[in-house]
Computed example of a mutant assay.
Amino acid sequence: MESDPPFHEKYKNLFSSFAEKAGNSKAAHENEPVMADECAPPVVDLRWLSAGDMEQKECCKREIAGAANQWGLFQVVNHGIPREILARIKREQVKLFRIPFHKKANDRFPNLPAEYYRWGTPTASSLTQFSWSEAFHIPLENLAKLKLLNSTLSKTIAEFAEATSELAQGIAEILAENLGCSPTFFSKNCLRSSCYLRLNRYPPCPISSQVFGLVPHTDSDFLTILYQDQVGGLQVVKDGRWVNIKPNPDSLIIIIGDLFQAWSNGVYKSMEHRVVSNHRVERFSIGYFLCPSNETVIQPCHQPSIYRKFSFGEYRQQVQQDVIATGGKIGLRRFLTCRMKISAQTL
């Protein structure tokens, strides 16, 4: 069975193992939350932050904080990123992924390190841990000297990164103010050079009922800004059920990550999400990830703390170790305080 990238060829043992077990085992995803209908998460109109009076501005801030607490995911409209930039980066992204696979995989791009291009899941030991997708992972610290394929692509990525960086900082500061914490934490620790972009493509999948486009996970950053096309496929856990997030052409999606859950002492929720694969059509998305430097210490500004303090570098290293050892991410459970671990064990 052919695919682009060649998933079946690269991971033939994984697919063969699944086929052998399929007739003698229960459904591969039987332990997941029950599927629910399509659902629209909160939509926040950001125009009131600049165009509204004081009451409207404060109401908008409360909507942002409430969505981060109740959902961990919300949509923003009138976000300030020009449609022209969004349309242009989508066009450039599609052209980038249209390059033949052997050129992408063999690092034949000028000034582009091989690890920037990723596909499949090398650590997967079963199909439940496998993602049917490919991506360009671009640290913004290298953006100024990065010449991907042409000046148009590089310029567009730089413009998109600048606009989303400003948006991410603004939302993070609002969430910090709501906690009574210093909003300057993010301008000091989450510099644009420590953040990154990820350009995603989810190819058509002939076994879409068996494989995820992107496996269930939480993001390890403070927050993610996601720009997606209109194909659909993003799902999140809400009240113990997976729900489909209907694409909105006028919105960007904000996803709260692990660091914000820890930094807020559990007030804001890191949203578990996934992407289901599509049998017929491909899907594209772009994520901007608001990250601090590896040395930044994550510690709630209010006590008693649910989580022990840790550096971002320590957290990333632990996640990588867990993925290699178990095939999946354990995440914040590793960083609960001793008191919280004991409480969880007694429940």
Rank of each mutant, 00 (worst) to 15 (best):
K10F: 05
T121V: 08
F260A: 15
R192E: 10
Q299K: 13
E30C: 09
V276H: 00
Y117L: 10
P247I: 05
N13V: 07
A172V: 09
M35V: 11
L223T: 01
Y315N: 01
I207V: 15
W48S: 08
Q303S: 07
Y268E: 00
F222Y: 15
S17F: 11
D250V: 00
V231T: 14
D250G: 05
L112R: 12
A344C: 12
A161Q: 13
F136T: 08
R118H: 08
V215H: 05
E20Q: 14
V43K: 09
S193P: 01
A176G: 01
D37I: 02
K95Q: 10
Y117G: 08
R108W: 09
D229N: 13
K21Y: 03
G170D: 06
L234C: 08
S16L: 05
E20L: 12
A158T: 12
D258H: 07
L223Q: 08
N31D: 15
A67Q: 06
R198Y: 04
L252E: 10
Q321R: 14
A168D: 06
K61R: 15
R339D: 11
L146Y: 03
E282S: 12
V77I: 15
E32L: 11
V297D: 08
V243Q: 02
N13H: 12
R88M: 12
E166C: 09
Q235L: 03
V76Q: 06
D37V: 03
E38H: 04
C195L: 10
N294I: 00
P42L: 04
R201C: 09
E20F: 02
N78I: 07
N111I: 07
P41W: 01
V243A: 10
F260G: 01
D229V: 01
P183Y: 01
E20G: 11
V44K: 04
E58D: 14
I81C: 12
C190Y: 00
I255Y: 04
Q299N: 07
G233C: 02
Q169A: 01
N142E: 08
K329T: 14
K246P: 02
K269H: 08
V237D: 02
P100C: 08
F15E: 05
V276Y: 06
K103S: 13
R308P: 00
V297R: 14
L96E: 08
S182H: 06
C195I: 05
S208H: 14
E115S: 08
A135W: 07
T218N: 10
S270C: 04
I64W: 04
E159Q: 11
C190I: 04
V281E: 15
R333K: 11
W132Y: 01
F160M: 11
P249A: 03
G266M: 07
G72C: 06
D322I: 02
M54S: 13
G257I: 02
T164N: 12
D322P: 06
G66N: 13
G52D: 06
S293V: 08
N294H: 11
L191H: 07
H279T: 12
L226T: 11
R333W: 11
C291D: 13
K341N: 14
N13F: 06
L167Y: 01
A105L: 02
F222H: 13
V236E: 02
C291P: 00
K21D: 11
K104Q: 13
W242V: 06
P204I: 05
C301Y: 05
F312D: 03
V323W: 03
D37K: 10
I255D: 09
